[in-house]
Computed example of a mutant assay.
Amino acid sequence: MYNLLHIYALCITVLFIKMFAISCYQGYFRIKNKAFKNKEDAQYLNINAHIEELPQVIRANQAWANDLENIPMFWVLGGICIALSLNSPLITWTFCIFTIARIIHTYTYLVRIQPWRTISYITGIVCLFILAFNIIVTCL
């Protein structure tokens, strides 16, 4: 049987792979369209630099920025849950649901699907509040 640390490690690894995939997504569109904004990148390929980023790259960058607003909070709150030995089915499910919500959020962000992007975002935030509430209750 898995303990909470195993679930946490798996979720963190999945989130890392998801974030890396966003970088690959950006690179794919830059290479496919030979559209590099950085002068040194364009010069390396003997092409002219683009003045603006591609729309797909901008969108992926926005998804990446949203991850940076949420995933580090999960890292910290999840780590505190483990340190406090909050090994309950609720915490385990919260870790898993947060991870799935962030994957769905990125996908729906990249392909511009509403209301699922907002629903997945809110789901992730609710998970963070569940973790925080459990930490507060345990510490009091």
Rank of each mutant, 00 (worst) to 15 (best):
residue 81 C to Q: 00
residue 73 M to E: 09
residue 10 L to W: 07
residue 55 P to Q: 00
residue 50 H to W: 15
residue 75 W to D: 01
residue 57 V to G: 07
residue 31 I to W: 09
residue 137 V to D: 05
residue 53 E to G: 09
residue 94 T to D: 01
residue 23 S to D: 08
residue 106 T to K: 10
residue 50 H to L: 15
residue 99 T to V: 04
residue 54 L to T: 03
residue 48 N to C: 10
residue 131 L to M: 06
residue 83 A to R: 09
residue 37 K to C: 14
residue 11 C to I: 04
residue 99 T to S: 03
residue 116 W to P: 03
residue 125 I to L: 10
residue 86 L to T: 04
residue 57 V to P: 03
residue 111 V to N: 13
residue 105 H to P: 06
residue 51 I to F: 13
residue 94 T to H: 01
residue 41 D to Q: 15
residue 39 K to F: 06
residue 120 S to P: 02
residue 128 L to M: 03
residue 133 F to C: 06
residue 119 I to V: 06
residue 137 V to K: 08
residue 39 K to T: 11
residue 122 I to V: 08
residue 45 L to K: 05
residue 107 Y to A: 14
residue 89 P to T: 11
residue 86 L to K: 06
residue 40 E to H: 15
residue 103 I to D: 04
residue 21 A to S: 14
residue 80 I to A: 08
residue 109 Y to T: 08
residue 62 Q to W: 09
residue 4 L to N: 01
residue 135 I to P: 00
residue 95 F to M: 00
residue 66 N to I: 10
residue 46 N to T: 14
residue 76 V to E: 04
residue 31 I to Q: 13
residue 137 V to N: 09
residue 139 C to M: 14
residue 68 L to F: 12
residue 78 G to H: 07
residue 34 K to N: 12
residue 76 V to R: 06
residue 114 Q to I: 13
residue 61 N to E: 13
